[in-house]
Amino acid sequence: MKDKIKNIVLPASFGILMIALWEGRMIHKLLGFKPFQLPIPSEIIKTLSKNFNKAIIDTLTTVNGALVGLVIGCIIGFLVAVIATQFPKWGYTGLTVIATFNAIPIVALSPIMNRWFESGFGQKVGVVTVVCMGAMAINSYRGLNDLKPFARDLMQSYAASEKEVFFKLRLPNCLPSIFTAIKINVPAALMAAMISEYFAASTSGLGFGVKDNLRKGMMAMGWSYIVMASLVGIILYLFIIVVERRAIKWHASQR
C-alpha cells in the first residue's frame, strides 16, 4: 500500500513542479524561449475555457473517427488472427501482409489514403483502421496460439471439437493479448486521426485545430487543442484499464 501511494505521489509532484516552473517562466529563461513560442499554462487554460464549446466539438469529431476506425481495425485484425489460427496454411500469409502495414509510417500513408475517401470522416476512419489492424492481428494471433503445454492434448483427450477448442481454450486464453492490443491501439488511433486531419482538407477536429491555430500564430489556442488531445487519450486509456481489470482479473498482469 505504501508503495502504491509513493507511485502516485512522486510522479504527481514532479508534474506539478514542471507546471509551476513553466508557469513561472523558468523554462523560458532556461531554454531562451519567448512568451509567444510557449504560452504559459494559465493562459492556455483561460483560452481553452473561453473557446470550450468549439474545442469540445472538434474533440468529438476526432474521437468519433478514431473510435470507429479503432473498432473496425481491431475487428479486422482479430478476424485475420482467427483465420490464420484455424487455416494456418494460407491464413498465416494474410497475417504477414497485415503485419507489414504496421511498418508503413502514417505520415506517408495518410496523404495517400486521403485521396481514396471523399469525406474527412471516411479518410480518418480509413487511416485509423489500417494503423490498428496490425497490432491486433499479431497480438491476438499470439494469444490464440500460445497455449499452455498439454492444453490442446487435454481437449483432444476429451474429443473436443475445433469449435469447443476455440471457445473454451483459445478465446479466453487470447483475452489478455486483446487488451494489450487495444492499449497499444487507443493512443495510436488518436494520433492517426489527428495526422489524417493535418493532411486533409477538413476544417474541424483536433489535428486541424492544432495545425490551423499554430499557423495563425494563436499559440494558446493551439495548445488548448493539445491539452484536449492529451486529456482524451488519458481518459480512453484509463477506461480500457478499468474494463481490463474486471475482465481478466485472473491474469498475472492484474494480480
Binding site: 499452455k148 503445454p149 498439454f150 492444453a151 492434448d153 487435454l154 473454451k168 486464453n173 483475452l175 485472473w250
Partner: peptide, 11 residues
C-alpha cells in the same frame, strides 16, 4: 488424463 503439469485454465 493427468499430465506432467496440471494444465488448469487460468480464467
Amino acid at each position: 488424463i493427468v499430465f506432467q503439469n496440471p494444465v488448469l485454465y487460468d480464467w
